[in-house]
């Protein structure tokens, strides 16, 4: 995820302090991992340098100085460009699981065991996600669904591989 673009986007609705930006980010997108302050400031200084934001004002009070950032026209264009550019789908071509299965076969270990253990683990994650989805709001549901569908895809691969283990064993042995 591009934190820079996300923060830029958040600024579009109006100038904000760095602290506000972190809060807004955490609220909307940071379900699993909240941003560190450091991350916010380093990102903002990069954006400043590139002319995508400007410092709208500085509050000096009792505590540390607080800058207020505002987005520039270049910034808006950049957000627009980011949204318009499709994400490159993950290639998923290098899979640890596949490596594990082949290795198990090569070393004459039980590959089914590998698959089943993985499958069980996947399902446990899915259970947790399902449970969270059940209790959460729409945002939760969409985020969990995203994860669930990916896990499900993995699971289907596990099933398929389990069904083709014999063929794979032959292929590996050659």
């Amino acid at each position: 995820m591009s934190i820079g673009h996300t923060l830029l986007g958040l600024l579009e609705s109006g100038p904000r302090h760095g602290y506000d930006l972190k809060r807004a980010f955490d609220e909307k997108f940071g379900h699993d991992r909240p941003l560190h302050y450091g991350q916010v400031y380093s990102t903002m200084s990069r954006l400043l340098k590139n002319g995508l934001v400007v410092v709208d004002g500085v509050e000096t009070g009792g505590g540390p100085e607080r800058k207020r950032y505002a987005i520039t026209d270049d910034g808006i264009t950049d957000v627009q460009r980011w949204l318009g550019t499709p994400e490159k789908p993950e290639p998923y071509l290098q899979s640890t699981l596949y490596t594990k299965v082949v290795l198990a076969l090569l070393t004459r270990r039980d590959a089914t065991e590998v698959l089943d253990t993985q499958r069980s683990e996947h399902l446990r994650s899915m259970r947790i996600l399902t449970d969270r989805k059940r209790k959460g709001d729409l945002a939760d549901q969409l985020i969990c669904d995203h994860a669930l569908f990916h896990l499900e895809a993995d699971l289907r691969w596990l099933e398929l591989t389990a069904a083709r283990l014999d063929k794979l064993r032959e292929a590996v042995a050659r």
């Binding site: 089943d116 499958r119 069980s120 996947h122 399902l123 899915m126 259970r127 996600l129 399902t130 669930l148 569908f149 896990l151 499900e152 699971l155 289907r156 389990a162």
Partner: peptide
């Protein structure tokens, strides 16, 4: 799998044999 995710635990049947994943 997404339906099975509503369960507490799963049993896999393969070729007529069952496998209790939790106990395994």
């Amino acid at each position: 799998a997404r339906v099975a995710a509503y369960s507490d635990r799963e049993i896999v049947v393969r070729d007529g044999k069952s496998r209790d994943m939790e106990r395994a």
